[in-house]
Design a protein around this nucleic acid. Structure first.
Lengths: 196, 196
DNA sequence: CGTTCAGTTGAAGGCATTCAACGTCGGTGG
DNA sequence: CCACCGACGTTGAATGCCTTCAACTGAACG
């Protein structure tokens, strides 16, 4: 686990999954971001980040020393523009997640999480649009991402299975049997402009 | 109320308070940002924003037409750097709020909200460190900001009053009688590096 | 005055949590 | 080899926090 303020690198995730999280003094934890392949870690112009970065699977990073990287950014307006875009994307994602954390039910949270996994790890269309996916997080980590307890996560996953939405090959791997039902369960607009 | 995609301006808040919010199809809404004086509205390089901007009090804005503003940004590296900082500040704020939404109790949410108001509207020290503050939001808007119902907001505010933390001069104006108790009630680290 | 909107308060109910026990799997060492 | 252990996951029962539903208050306004 990395504490941000020891960090003199910036990096990009190549393989694997990492997470950003914040913790209250009494131990309650909230994941505030999931870092999937292609995501960027670190921020230009800031020495430190004030949350924990944790690898949740084996991870391969592409690291750059901070100083030379920042010099390169200064000299390349195109790059700084790109970094701004990344920051704004993260901001949008954070705000979507605020809606989830503040207003969605447990079932909707789980469904939204699974839908996001499906969209972001485009290993789908393997056979007749039945994406075969792996959970990159333990039940507890999912709970911390969704603002739930691990027991509730377990129950809701099994409820979705019972309802024929999911099928598990083992505890960490599953297929989405019914994409339409999954999307209904997210609570979002039926086809929120999404091309799936 | 502004819909973002009709917007050909960017702006800065001068006086008053506005809010950013997202809504589910069934009407549940979550405020994802509060815009206080000095905050910036709009984003470079993006035609639209996909949430609602609503004034919650009378507001004075300082507006710029988008096109000329963007040209100015391109020519002024210092300015684009500043915008990046603003975006990263918003990102940090969003992530703090995710911790609140996902993990804090109703009482902690209210206390955190009031503490934030106190810090951001530095009208305090009016007499012996007893900030006199105005709620810029209705109970319902506070509820939408904190992921609660308006009844719960009302109850918790009155509970804080009963506990001697607050004192109301009327329904929208109050003073903090006991800052230490308020900070305890936030659930955050006792003195999380905060200089109050 | 009556109406409306914001806020308060009470009572009942529900969803998620909490507490607890059990099941499963992989690794480690006797 | 297998017994043990710890990490992860499931499931049941009870509790509780917040919500939901509903009635009421008070101030502003025409």
């Amino acid at each position: 686990m990395w504490r941000g303020d020891e960090l003199e690198f910036v990096a990009s995730v190549v393989v694997g999954v990492a997470s950003l999280s914040k913790t209250l003094e009494d131990g309650r934890t909230q994941m505030v971001g999931l870092l999937l392949p292609s995501d960027f870690i670190g921020r230009p112009g800031r020495e430190e980040i004030e949350f924990d970065v944790t690898a949740t699977t084996d991870v391969t990073l592409c690291c750059f020393r901070r100083k030379p990287f920042e010099k390169m950014v200064e000299k390349t307006p195109h790059l700084s523009q790109r970094l701004m875009e990344l920051a704004l994307d993260e901001l949008d994602a954070a705000r979507d997640w605020m809606l989830l954390l503040g207003r969605k039910t447990a079932r909707e949270k789980i469904a939204t999480f699974l839908e996001m996994l499906m969209i972001r790890s485009r290993t789908d269309n393997i056979e007749g649009n039945r994406p075969d996916l792996a959970l990159p997080l333990t039940r507890e980590q999912i709970a911390n991402y969704l603002g739930l307890t691990l027991e509730t996560v377990s129950r809701q996953l099994n409820a979705l299975k019972k309802d024929g939405v999911l099928e598990f090959t083992d505890r960490r791997n599953f297929t989405v049997r019914d994409i339409a039902k999954l999307q209904e369960a997210t609570g979002d607009d039926a086809d929120g402009g999404m091309i799936v």
